[in-house]
Amino acid sequence: MGKALVVYGSTTGNTETVAQVVAKTLEGEGMEVVLKDVAGVKPGGLADGYDLVLFGCSTWGDDEIELQEDFIPLYDGLDAAGLSGKKVAVFGCGDSSYTHFCGAVDAIMEKASELGAKVVDLPLKIDGTPDEAEARTWAKNVL
């Protein structure tokens, strides 16, 4: 069915949990999946060899959108990742009491689209504790 890359940045563990659920769901649907913590990736050629790239990032900040700290270098270098023509989906966890609820998800999705990625499905934005059923359903819809 294809090969997917799931890259996530997580501080509290919520986005990591969602990334694991998404990866397992995609595998269950027949995809070969590589799951990576963003702290261990470099932007250059990141998407090479993958049919689908999923980015997961939590959001911080009330006055402005702040990406999860380990995700910032990837975001800043996303133009080198080779996203043009690739299917991309974005997910993240946040807190709806903040002004920019899951704003990192929107920022990543917008940048990927500007770089020529084919953004598939709506982004998954989870408020607070991850809902694993919601993550599984979203992952299946991404396919």
Rank of each mutant, 00 (worst) to 15 (best):
T11A: 15
N14C: 12
A80T: 11
T12M: 12
V6T: 01
T25Y: 01
P73R: 05
S58W: 14
H100E: 09
A39L: 06
K125G: 12
D131H: 09
V90H: 01
G77Y: 08
F71L: 12
D63H: 14
A80G: 01
A117R: 02
G28V: 09
E29F: 10
T25D: 02
V34T: 13
D37M: 03
G128F: 11
A135F: 00
K36F: 10
G77M: 01
E110W: 07
V33C: 08
S84N: 12
G103P: 06
I72N: 06
W138Q: 01
K3Q: 04
D51Q: 00
L35R: 07
M109F: 03
L67N: 11
D48C: 08
V18I: 15
G61W: 04
V120C: 06
G44Q: 15
A4M: 14
A117M: 06
N141M: 11
T11E: 14
E66Y: 08
E132Y: 05
A89L: 00
P73S: 08
K86F: 02
W60N: 09
F55C: 03
K140Q: 14
V90F: 03
K140M: 12
F71P: 02
L83T: 00
A47I: 00
G2W: 02
Q20A: 12
A104Q: 09
V33Q: 00
W138H: 03
L122W: 14
S97G: 10
A104P: 11
G94V: 10
D121W: 03
V33H: 01
C57F: 09
G128K: 06
A117H: 11
T129H: 13
A39P: 03
A23H: 02
A117G: 13
A135P: 05
G56D: 02
L83S: 00
Y98G: 04
L115N: 05
D79C: 04
K24M: 13
L115D: 09
E32D: 14
E69N: 10
E27T: 13
A133Y: 10
D51H: 10
D121N: 14
G13H: 10
D121I: 04
V119M: 03
K87Q: 09
S84I: 04
R136Q: 15
K125A: 07
V7C: 04
L143C: 08
T15K: 00
G28F: 08
T11W: 10
S58R: 10
D79A: 11
F71G: 06
E132M: 14
L122H: 14
T59I: 08
S84D: 14
T99H: 12
E66L: 14
I65F: 04
G61P: 07
E27A: 15
T99Y: 10
I126H: 02
D48P: 11
F91V: 05
A107H: 07
A4D: 11
F101E: 06
V34R: 05
T59N: 00
T59L: 05
L46E: 02
K111S: 05
D70A: 07
K24Q: 15
E132Q: 13
T25F: 10
V119L: 07
G128Y: 09
V38P: 02
L74F: 06
F55D: 07
L115P: 14
D48N: 13
N141T: 06
S58L: 12
G61R: 05
A47Y: 01
G85L: 06
K86H: 11
K36P: 09
G61T: 00
S96G: 02
G61Y: 07
P123D: 04
D76L: 13
A107G: 10
